[in-house]
Design a protein around this nucleic acid. Structure first.
Lengths: 100, 100
DNA sequence: AAAATATATTGACAAATATCTATTTGAAGT
DNA sequence: ACTTCAAATAGATATTTGTCAATATATTTT
């Protein structure tokens, strides 16, 4: 159940770049096409592609292909996992019976 | 109230290195002296010092000096801030009036 | 005051990362 | 089939980051 240090860093590495944080904020408003995201950001298409790969690999974001377009959105499951991961990482004891 | 992308990345950068995650896990068991941490890790003293600075700057960890020793522990406040930050980053709508 | 010890700082270096341009892949429309 | 358009990939490069050895700083002990 407990994740390795490596697995944890994959999640948080996704969040340690300014531009990826911007992307996540944009996705808070709902699913967005890659080209729509690109409109609101200050870098090139290959760079966006690179960031989206990292975000998807982290599980925080999911992609859906429709024709030639890619639609991205936040993953509820992935986010829950990240929050759990952070909580777990910092909670007092690993074996909480949780009868508070 | 809303943090800048930069401020957010400072928090998550702290969590995106394997060794810093290890350090946080060690600190889950309570306050530790730097030299005690060093015993359990595979790198040199200057590297530990470097990582502790990043962890402290992120607010997740606090240091306390006692004579020539430095004692580190997790910061409840800093952790709460990080969890809030992650939740906020990914919660559905940005404009909650928050007069609860 | 001098020695010993814990931690921080400096400077160097290798590895990882973010970015770009150029190209490729894949899907739609003509 | 050819063209067009969206996204991905490849390769190059500059910046950032993690690490170490050497040194400095600060505190305690003798």
């Amino acid at each position: 159940m407990s994740m390795t240090e490596k697995q944890i860093t994959v999640i948080f590495k996704a969040l340690c770049d300014e531009n990826r944080v911007k992307i996540i904020r944009l996705l808070k408003n709902g699913e967005r096409c890659a080209c729509k995201l690109l409109d609101e950001l200050q870098f090139t298409q290959p760079t966006l592609s690179h960031h989206m790969k990292i975000l998807c690999d982290s599980g925080l974001v999911v992609g859906r292909k429709d024709g030639k377009w890619m639609y991205y959105s936040l993953s509820k499951q992935g986010i829950k996992n990240a929050v759990d991961c952070l909580s777990d990482l910092t909670s007092a004891t690993p074996n909480q019976t949780n009868n508070s």
